[in-house]
Computed example of a mutant assay.
Amino acid sequence: MKNVNEQKKYNHLLLDNKVCVIVGGGSLRSIGYATAELFAAHGAKLVLLDLVMNEEKAKEATNAIASQIGYTPEIICIPCDIRNTSDCEKAIAEAVAHFGTIDCLVNCAGIVKSEGMLSITEEAYDLIMDVNLKGTFNICQSALKIFAEKQAGVIVNLSSLSAQRGGGLVGGTHYAASKGGVISLTKAIAREFAPKNIRANVICPAMIETSMLDGLSEQQLKDVVSGIPLQRVGKTVEVAGACLFLASDLSGFTTGATIDVNGGIHIH
């Protein structure tokens, strides 16, 4: 039988009083929102960033989280275009000014477009790359300035199964390439900043119940599901669970890792 001290060791919130910046939480159907809700349930203080964030969306997210966890979390919501370095700098500065520091960055922001290689215009290519890869770089760089100074911090970036298998599901070659860059970027951050006690890991989801599936017909979705060993698409909270693991001390010796959340559709 465990003694009282041993029992207490396991009876704590995984992110108690941690300040977590989550990018891409403007929609209640998003992985970013699901991550914010789960983190709040584990005691985190939240900073929600999104290009479309406004007073209405901030209130919607805050109320939704409060209704799920039973109280209103400490939360600030900031509009931020991660394509813009000054936006990222200002958002992180505002978070630090409000909470005193930041402890974790989870970047769920991303856009997708499905089109053949020969149909991709320069404008479409630049937009995908600017949001998915450059935007990830920008917000990571801004957060890392704080993490490097305090000699501690955690980064979780979202990539995609498309980066691992060369597309083939949702998203064109530019999308797959941008998400492949996110994997490499995260590994490089992990290697460079590990001596400063900063960890960085990446998650590669497959088909998840978000607005990204809205463009698929019922038959297309059925065809996709038939190829998934678990025979269903994933839930946003299941990706959020992987984010929670990587953000918490449970993964304290994990950095530079790629975590698959794909129902077994890609096993390697």
Rank of each mutant, 00 (worst) to 15 (best):
G215A: 08
H98C: 11
H12S: 08
A240L: 02
V202M: 05
V52P: 01
N132C: 04
T136D: 03
H12N: 09
E122R: 09
G168Q: 10
D126G: 14
I78V: 02
E37P: 07
K187D: 06
L230Q: 15
S30Q: 12
A41E: 15
R165W: 00
A34W: 10
I128R: 11
P195R: 06
D81Y: 05
N54G: 10
I259Q: 15
A194E: 07
I111T: 12
K57Y: 14
D16S: 14
Y125M: 12
K18P: 10
I228C: 15
F193T: 02
K57H: 11
I82S: 07
L13K: 12
F147C: 09
I76C: 00
S217I: 01
S142E: 04
P195V: 10
K187S: 09
A242K: 00
A176L: 05
Y71D: 01
V47P: 08
A242W: 02
Q219N: 04
H266C: 14
P73S: 00
G263S: 13
A95M: 01
Q164C: 13
A188C: 14
G135F: 02
G25S: 14
V233Q: 03
T255W: 07
I111H: 02
C88M: 10
E94I: 04
G110N: 08
Q219V: 08
T254A: 10
G43V: 13
E55M: 07
S67H: 09
F147H: 10
N11A: 13
E94P: 00
I82D: 07
I22E: 09
K179V: 04
T210F: 07
A40F: 11
A257N: 14
F99T: 03
E6W: 02
V47N: 10
A64R: 14
A97C: 05
G180K: 02
E238W: 00
L161I: 15
G116M: 12
